[in-house]
């Protein structure tokens, strides 16, 4: 028999962490060709960190994204960063990059004031890669040309330093209260499953989610996190484990052919909507949307299995064996107490 069920789960997810303080730093400098290098020590794991930081830097510098190079090459030589984890990078590094860009703009203003023979306070950025005398568009210089002049004519650097730190927050020993994060993103997921009561296999039919992630710097990348995270959550819920027959490590998977993950055949219908309530302290109002995407699908799927079968499972992954044992236990319980009100005991 195949039983269908629907489950729901929600998540509030912290952006960043706070153990001994949570700093990120960024350095920006102009090259001789007028492009800007943003040096970081927080790497891109594939989520698009370099892309969103490039967008933020371009916005803050007032230049085209094509003129920004984000360099995350080397944590030995780059500015200090705690790293890319805890859904912190866009928030922390983005703030540091904006601070660094403000210093760069000051350096550009110094040189532009001399080049244009204008008062510093009369200059403005047009956001399109130019600096001009306010109200006199004819008196305008390309930012790339200002950077070049700084280096070849004035012997100056065009550079900026930026830092952002979430300070350490001690834990109140009486209450446990502390300030653990900078902001929180939210999501709610509804999962539909079909459970085969003969085999114990679970097919996930759909994962539908609503996300509130602050301002989206790059909606395509946000969607990529949500869709990929839904698959990861499903994989954690039903497939992945390094110790399927714990405690004997001899049975642990040794390679990709033994480590179970769902593939292209198993993908459910995945849908999402994204709401934007900007945070007060992220760059342009962002919150973190990374790790959280693999969270709510897991309890949503487990709740859907409960809804479908009445079997409450409290360990992961939910293997066919766990479901069959749960169904057996339910049948035995029904035999022991046949007179009980079945509507009240169903699923206990």
């Amino acid at each position: 028999m195949k039983l269908r069920g629907t489950g729901v789960a929600a998540v509030n997810y912290p952006t960043g962490m706070n153990l001994g303080g949570d700093p990120s730093q960024a350095l920006i400098h102009a090259t001789t060709s007028g492009t800007f290098v943003v040096s970081l020590s927080s790497t891109d794991l594939g989520q698009g960190h370099r892309t969103v930081i490039g967008q933020i830097a371009a916005e803050a510098l007032g230049v085209a994204m094509e003129d920004v190079i984000v360099d995350t090459a080397d944590t030995d030589t780059g500015p200090h960063d705690m790293g890319t984890f805890a859904s912190r990078a866009t928030h922390r590094v983005g703030n540091a990059v904006i601070a660094a860009a403000l210093e760069v703009r000051e350096a550009l203003l110094d040189v532009a004031a001399e080049e244009l023979e204008a008062a510093r306070t009369d200059l403005e950025f047009d956001g399109q890669g130019n600096l001009m005398v306010r109200g006199a568009p004819a008196r305008s210089l390309k930012i790339a040309d200002i950077a070049s002049a700084a280096q070849f004519k004035y012997g100056k650097t065009i550079a900026g330093r930026g830092a952002f730190m979430k300070p350490k927050s001690p834990v109140d020993p009486e209450t446990g209260a502390m300030d653990p994060d900078s902001t929180e993103a939210h999501a709610c997921t509804v999962a539909e499953v079909e459970v085969d009561t003969e085999t114990g296999e679970v097919k996930v039919l759909s994962i539908r989610s609503a996300y509130e992630v602050g301002r989206q710097v790059n909606p395509a990348l946000v969607k990529g996190q949500i869709v990929g995270g839904a698959w990861m959550g499903m994989s954690h819920a039903l497939y992945e484990t390094t110790a399927p027959y714990y405690p004997d490590p001899g049975h642990a998977p040794k390679d990709f052919s033994e480590y179970l993950m769902p593939g292209a055949h198993e993908i459910p219908q995945i849908e999402c909507v994204v709401l934007e309530y900007p945070s007060s302290n992220g760059p342009y109002g962002v919150k973190g949307v990374g790790e959280m995407t693999a969270n709510s699908p897991i309890p949503a799927i487990v709740n859907a299995i409960y809804h479908a079968t009445g079997v409450r499972i409290d360990e992961l992954p939910v293997t066919p064996e766990l479901i069959l044992r749960g169904l057996d236990a339910k049948r035995r319980a029904a035999l022991v107490a046949p007179a009980a009100d079945t509507t009240a005991t169903a699923g206990r």
Binding site: V227, G228, W231, F256, M261, G263, A264, H265, I270
Partner: peptide, 20 residues
């Protein structure tokens, strides 16, 4: 047919749907 063709290739990030 697409899903069958992709069955031997693992992806850890996208959830496969964007690839399909």
């Amino acid at each position: 047919a697409i899903v069958d063709a992709l069955a031997g290739n693992l992806c850890r990030c996208t959830g496969y749907e964007p690839i399909v």
